[in-house]
Design a protein around this nucleic acid. Structure first.
Length: 168
DNA sequence: GCCGGAACAG
DNA sequence: CTGTTCCGGC
């Protein structure tokens, strides 16, 4: 597959509940596809609104996702069930009335997956907002360069969060 | 197509 | 935990 290490640092693939595992998540995969080819391909592309994306070829997307996860029987019916589980997590929601169209909640995406402990005051207060700004920039301009900058900032935040830089 | 419950896997 | 599989309902 295309370069997952380019877009996401390794720690982004490790859920907090399972330090050993390194399973790619569906929203990683979607952003990966949307981050390349100027945000447009025959399979998936950014939509009209901010964070909105359209699946142009649902079964092809499912096949690619199945290849990544080692699930040869993946299809859009099952992939879309996984997308629907994102609704309550506030990672995605459906753009109603538009076929195969969903929308990212990027601020929630950041807060859920990369939240800072409230007790830590080592970081500037607006690190999240800075990241969101970069990510929104990459969305509006469809520049993978901006996405790389965003993830570099992610890495920086992660480094600052390490025990070596703990408060007190 | 889209929804969400239920059982299940790793 | 994040999905995967299956499915009845709209």
């Amino acid at each position: 597959g295309p370069s997952r290490s380019v877009l996401f640092p390794d720690w982004a693939y490790k859920p907090a509940w399972s330090p050993g595992s390194r399973q790619v998540q569906l929203w990683h995969f979607l952003l990966e596809l949307l981050g390349g080819s100027g945000g447009q391909s025959d399979t998936i592309g950014w939509g009209g609104e901010w964070g909105e994306f359209v699946i142009h070829n649902p079964e092809r997307l499912a096949r690619l996702w199945g290849e990544r996860k080692g699930k040869p029987h993946m299809n859009y019916d099952k992939l879309s069930r996984a997308l629907r589980y994102y609704y309550n997590k506030r990672i995605l929601h459906k753009t109603k009335g538009k076929r195969f169209t969903y929308k990212f909640n990027f601020s929630k995406l950041v807060l859920v997956n990369f939240h800072l402990p409230p007790s830590c005051h080592c970081l500037p207060p607006s690190c999240h907002q800075v990241f969101i700004f970069f990510l929104s920039l990459s969305l509006s301009l469809s520049l993978s360069l901006s996405l790389s900058l965003s993830l570099s900032l992610f890495s920086l935040i992660h480094t600052l969060r390490s025990p070596d830089n703990a408060c007190e």
